[in-house]
């Protein structure tokens, strides 16, 4: 597990934004993931529900996050993912690991990756899989 010490010998914690876009109030999944990532030694900024692409981008930039996790259970994931990929690119943040989770139909997975999402975690994903993916792929900060 990553942790930081006074002499800085260990890698600092990975910073993650967990965000819920749009009119989607179901945040239990997002909170479960946030807690699991915390327990894996990561620093998770939870932005809450009803976020816009602009507010999510602002959080990614100001917090200097290495990972953005978008949780969507409303079916609107494609639109938000497209908007955010565009915003991340415009703001020189293409190295951010962009993960999308929630009720994502399998057939949408490929298209999400094509627009720039790094990985998709649909129904039934184990939190260990998300943690491992982040640990292996998060960019250094």
């Amino acid at each position: 597990m990553t942790s930081s010490t006074a002499d800085g010998t260990k890698a600092p914690p990975i910073k993650v934004i967990v965000a819920k876009p749009g009119l989607d109030g179901h945040d239990r999944g997002a909170k479960v993931v946030a807690r699991a990532l915390r327990d894996a030694g990561m620093e998770v900024v939870y932005t809450g529900i009803y976020q816009t692409p602009d507010s999510i981008l602002r959080a990614v930039i100001q917090e200097d996050a290495a990972v953005l996790g978008l949780s969507s259970l409303s079916g609107a994931h494609m639109e938000y993912a497209k908007d955010l990929c565009k915003l991340l690119a415009e703001n020189d943040r293409t190295d951010v690991l962009f993960l999308v989770g929630g009720t994502i139909p399998e057939e949408d997975g490929e298209e999400l990756k094509q627009v720039g999402v790094t990985e998709v975690f649909g129904p039934g994903t184990r939190t260990e899989d998300i943690i491992n993916f982040i640990v292996e792929n998060a960019p250094e900060r």
Binding site: M1, T2, S3, S4, P13, A34, R35, L37, R38, D39, A40, G41, M42, E43, V44, V45, Y46, T47, G48, Q51, S55, R58, A59, Q62, E63
Partner: peptide
């Protein structure tokens, strides 16, 4: 125990950040 953290303060400030380009919040 884990060294990790859930940083939730930003959540309560989010509504005050809308359209304010010169406000900067860091957790």
């Amino acid at each position: 125990i884990s060294g990790g953290a859930v940083l939730g303060d930003r959540l309560r400030m989010e509504t005050h950040l809308m359209g304010r380009e010169d406000v900067f919040v860091r957790s």
